[in-house]
């Protein structure tokens, strides 16, 4: 996932395998915005695109970067800087646009991120709900994912888990 420059499109497998029934596990796609690590439910991710020219839309809110055309459909691209309140970053080789469809009937939105990391399968006990943390986050923060170190080969720092529906509201 770290290098997908060979193709402009990095489609995810169309039919994702259902999580094993014996475990209450959710899959998340982790990404970087500035220096922070975030993750959104994989079920809402449609596609990951390399950066393509974005057409600026005058008079749009500042969190909207502009529009792109993806196979005939106009997709609005959002800037993670304003959406996630992180510092600005220049576009790099690692910059990607994640196409997110929050819910069945929702429109597909683009989220420009600095780097796409990997997919995490988090069990319920690896997720701290936002309500349990008590801090005053925005609605779009569902909680914090703490991948259990013992179960993984590589060290995995905590992830801020995002609710896609609230994110683009």
């Amino acid at each position: 996932m770290s290098d997908a420059s060979s193709s402009s499109l990095v489609p995810l497998s169309e039919s994702k395998p259902a999580p094993p029934p014996e475990e209450d596990v959710t899959e998340y796609l982790a990404f970087m915005a500035a220096t922070e690590r975030f993750a959104i439910p994989l079920s809402s991710v449609r596609e990951i695109l390399l950066v393509l020219p974005i057409t600026n839309v005058p008079r749009s809110p500042r969190e909207i970067l502009g529009i792109i055309v993806v196979r005939g459909t106009i997709v609005t691209v959002f800037d993670s800087r304003f959406l996630l309140k992180v510092d600005a970053n220049e576009s790099t080789r690692q910059t990607r646009i994640i196409l997110v469809k929050p819910d069945g009937d929702d429109e597909v939105m683009g989220l420009m991120v600095d780097q796409v990391l990997q997919v995490y399968r988090l069990a319920a006990e690896e997720v701290e709900p936002a309500t349990a943390i008590g801090a005053d986050f925005g609605d779009h923060v569902m909680g914090v994912g703490r991948p259990n170190e013992q179960r993984r080969a590589t060290p995995s720092p905590p992830l801020t888990l995002l609710d896609p529906k609230a994110l683009f509201r």
């Binding site: 839309v57 529009i67 459909t73 939105m109 683009f168």
Partner: peptide, 10 residues
Amino acid sequence: RALGKSLANV
């Protein structure tokens, strides 16, 4: 092509 709902107010 139509703009998305997110741009409906523009």
